[in-house]
Design a protein around this nucleic acid. Structure first.
Length: 822
RNA sequence: GCCGAAGUGGCGGAAUUGGCAGACGCGGCGGACUCAAAAUCCGCAGGGGUUCAGAGCCCCGUGAGGGUUCAACUCCCUCCUUCGGCACCA
């Protein structure tokens, strides 16, 4: 038998063995309890997998393998988020169809994943860009459409001039495109939306029911942004005497008597109507300028607030006071009603604005009921003043009374507003799932009948994006021209494609039934496997993928398609791996590490172990060649000790007193490592293995015969079993060298017997809270005995003689603290 | 500005959740093997003091300052720094 640690041979041998014996197939409807673990699937980019991906996939594989040994029927699938811009852009650049590029990239990714020794069920692999998959992405679009949750709207949208497509709200980062960092501009287009706002309440409320990182939950909560307030109606009249309603939304109805003007957004539908003749020219110019501004500038809080008087006035429904109406760019058109009541005394933005345009400021809330000179807005609650019948009330009381008063007199209503907007899903690009609708002159928008799905992406088309706001699919007349499913008359296909997040919103469902051609998935299979027990992925998807997926699940639940309304029971975020330059890994910085290179140099088991060891799983970590050497050293030491022990134990059998200790440490380690794995503390798990090996090595050095004992053999077996999820190749190799016929991966996870707890314990002896001595005594020794032993220790005796004992604290099996008065 | 997370040796990081701070690893130093180096193995190591030297003993020490407690990295208050998210949301 070979003595050298030849990891390439070992890897090859066992990967082949697992594959040939269908080791990691998940069995539908097995008797065992199910465990569905899933990682965020990769985008198969041209640059291949890098070690950053490993930070997610390796720990997830450890959990999958661990759970199998614990007796679970584990579903551990993988697939590819294959539609998307980078592939399409590359295709345009090189003149190769994206289908071909995707196929090639997936092959590379698949091989790289296999090299890592990850235990995926490869029979369930999915590819969102295959017609078998996107047929159902289209089907889900129709489901939403039928349920009134998909609609087309003509409005100003964010357009990325670089990607040449519109973007959803969530895909805007500080006014820039999430993919290419280009500042977005406004463009008026007819676009498809999903009504995620309809589920705002449920999406917020159900966050309480899922075990997700607080960080993600609070990000989603903020994103949904619920706020309770009052919508109150101001009446305005134009020069010709026509009356208009201007509803405004406020969370501070208690400040209503302090309103001194109204501001409407430049996009407000009445902005132009309300402008009087003499102001018309200036106001129109102002509106035009505001609308043409880039979103990034408009959003800037540093920007000075500007506005312009329309010439019209509105009436405060509570005191019938006439206040001027202005147009101002600090009012957001898409939030609330697009109009605000301005209370400069109690809102800092209104205050600044009023100062600038010399508008009146009236204090109506005071901390002490008296009026004060204001140098800035007083935004706290207080006592109402100058507020008619409501004066002298406290803010919170006033809010209640005013709300009742307003509802009773039909001046407005109490409402809950959300920050979240509907999800814009149409994209003016080629490489995505088609939107399955047809535009008929007679019948308008007609959904493609289900039996005609999928609407296939045409193969040969000039997919260069255009600046017109039209998809490149519009170039392909064979694709565009069709007939109306209702009347058979000439009609045109929708040419926009769906946002890639539509594909990823339901992919977890496809894994449970990946080859079904009658339905997206079988209900019985989804009932068996779902929801996902553990989902691991990056935090960057907090308000995109993770919110959309929850939305889809809720829609499906309401449609009776599934029996759960939250797809991912538990979520974990892995940290990033940064390059040796402490920067995010990227091709352009040249700091990317390819796992294949690491595997070549150290083997997959070392890479796996290093990824786990580099730091807490959920924190960022920096790639370090020195540390990977350390883990490799450990693996080699392990190999050397165990292979020589396997050889030695064949020579003779020995029994030694030291065996007891070997057993005790083994038991302790089983307990410790199991706890650590259960809590996803992979880094300390590796530390424990190192400690354990250090102990075994030291024992073998002190008593060389120890490796010939039964206890040592048993410990090796336990060690290897527990190491199997982490270093699966080496574990199987050593296991077979211990003369086992079956793979170690079919073994049960070891269980601690608790013998380590019956041992002696060391008690810390403290004087005035400082450690002075330690003693070894039997477990659960009573206080009196410990006190006696302690008082006979030289050091303690000396110290206690120098003062009087105030009190003695005894914590069983832990410590004794003597408090002295000096 | 608001919300969230985090500050521990030269470095990555441990600490059973209030009970021996610095596990494990990296780097470092000393030694063994070697002609030599690499690899490997053994040992030392938070800072300071005391001591001829070692053992020993003492003091200080988990971002800063205060507090609770017999006992604080851990709990409470104030502040500082770093990172992440949101940001004219009325």
């Amino acid at each position: 038998m070979e003595k050298e640690y030849n990891y390439s041979e070992i890897q090859k041998k066992w990967q082949k063995y697992w594959e040939e014996n269908n080791f990691y197939r998940a069995e539908d409807f097995s008797e065992k309890p199910k465990y569905y673990i899933m990682v965020m699937y990769p985008y198969p980019s041209g640059s291949g997998l890098h070690v950053g991906h490993c930070r997610n996939y390796i720990p997830a594989d450890v959990v999958a393998r661990y759970k199998r040994m614990k007796g679970f029927n584990v579903l551990n699938p993988i697939g590819y988020d294959a539609f998307g811009l980078p592939t399409e852009n590359y295709a345009i650049e090189k003149g190769i169809p994206p289908q071909e590029i995707t196929k090639k990239n997936i092959e590379i990714f698949r091989q790289q994943l296999k090299n890592l020794g990850i235990s995926y069920d490869w029979t369930r692999e999915i590819n969102t860009s295959s017609p078998e998959y996107y047929k159902w992405t289209e089907w889900f679009f129709l489901l939403l459409y039928k349920r009134g949750l998909a609609y087309k709207d003509y409005s100003a949208q964010w357009w990325c001039p670089h990607c040449k497509t519109v973007l959803a709200n969530e895909q805007l980062i500080n006014g820039k495109c999430w993919r290419c960092d280009t500042p977005v501009v406004k463009k008026r287009l007819a676009e498809w939306f999903f009504k995620i706002t309809e589920y705002a309440d449920a999406l917020e409320k159900d966050l309480e029911t899922i075990d997700w990182p607080e960080k993600i939950k609070s990000m989603q909560k903020n994103w949904i942004g619920k706020s309770k307030g009052t919508e109150i109606n101001f009446k305005a009249a134009t020069a010709d005497g026509t009356e208009y309603d201007i509803p405004v939304f406020t969370t501070r109805i208690d400040t209503i008597f302090g309103v001194t003007f109204l501001v409407v957004a430049p996009e407000h539908s009445l902005a132009k109507t309300l402008t009087t003749e003499e102001n018309r020219e200036k106001v129109l110019e102002y509106i035009k300028k505001a609308e043409s501004e880039k979103e990034i500038d408009r959003l800037s809080t540093e920007k000075e607030k500007t506005g312009i008087f329309t010439g019209s006035y509105a009436m405060n429904p509570l005191n019938n006071e006439k206040v001027p109406i202005l147009v101002g760019d600090y009012v957001v058109g898409t939030y609330g009603t697009g109009a605000v009541m301005s209370v400069p005394a109690h809102d800092q933005r209104d205050f600044v604005f009023a100062k600038k345009y010399k508008l009146p400021i009236r204090q109506v809330i005071s901390p002490d009921g008296k009026e004060h000179e204001l140098t800035e807005a007083y935004t706290e609650d207080g006592i109402l003043i100058n507020s008619g019948a409501f004066s002298t009330l406290k803010s919170n009381e006033a809010r209640e009374k005013l709300a009742t008063h307003i509802e009773k007199n039909h001046l407005g209503k109490s409402v809950t507003r959300s920050h979240i907007r509907d999800w814009l899903i149409s994209r003016q690009r080629y490489w995505g799932a088609p939107i399955p609708v047809i535009h008929c002159e007679k019948h308008g928008i007609v959904p493609v009948p289900e039996e005609n799905l999928p609407v296939l992406l045409p193969d040969e088309v000039d997919f260069t994006p255009r600046n017109t706001g039209e998809s490149p699919l519009a170039n392909d007349l064979d694709f565009v021209n069709t007939t109306c499913p209702i009347c058979g008359g000439p009609a045109k296909r929708e040419t926009d494609t769906q946002d890639g997040f539509a594909c990823s919103s339901w992919y977890y469902l496809r894994y449970v039934d990946p080859h079904n051609d009658k339905a997206p998935f079988d209900r019985k299979k989804s009932d068996y496997w779902l929801p996902v027990d553990l989902y691991i992925g990056g935090a960057e998807h907090a308000v995109m993928h993770l919110l959309y997926s929850r939305f889809y699940a809720k829609v499906m639940y309401d449609a009776g398609l599934i029996g759960f309304n939250e797809p991912f029971k538990k979520l974990l975020n892995q940290g990033m791996i940064l390059g040796i330059d402490h920067q995010k890994m990227s091709k352009s910085k040249g700091n990317v590490v390819n796992p294949d290179d690491v595997i070549k140099q150290y083997g997959a088991d070392t890479l796996r172990m290093y990824i786990l060891f580099m730091g807490p799983f959920d924190q960022d970590a920096i790639w370090s060649v020195e540390t990977i050497n350390g883990t490799h050293r450990f693996i080699k030491k392990l190999w050397t000790l165990f292979t020589s022990a396997i050889e030695e134990k064949k020579t003779e059998k020995v029994t030694l007193r030291k065996e007891k200790e070997i057993n005790v440490i083994q038991d302790k380690m089983i307990q410790k490592i199991t706890d650590q794995l259960e809590n996803y503390k992979f880094n300390t798990t590796i530390s424990s293995f190192m400690e354990w090996l250090n102990f075994l090595n030291k024992s073998a050095r002190e008593i060389p015969d120890i490796i010939k004992t039964d206890a040592f053999t048993e410990t090796m077996e336990t060690f290897i079993k527990m190491l199997a999820p982490i270093a699966p190749h080496m574990a199987d190799e050593l296991w077979s060298r211990l003369d086992h016929k079956e793979s170690v991966h079919l073994e049960q996870w070891p269980q601690a017997t608790g013998i380590y707890k019956e041992e002696k314990v060391s008690i810390v002896l403290e004087v005035n809270g400082k450690v002075r001595d330690t003693i070894e005594i039997g477990k659960d020794t009573d206080e009196q005995t410990v006190k006696e032993i302690a008082s006979n220790r030289e050091k303690i005796k000396k110290m206690t003689s120098e003062g009087t004992i105030l009190k003695i604290i005894y914590v069983k099996n832990k410590l004794l603290n003597i408090v002295l008065k000096k």
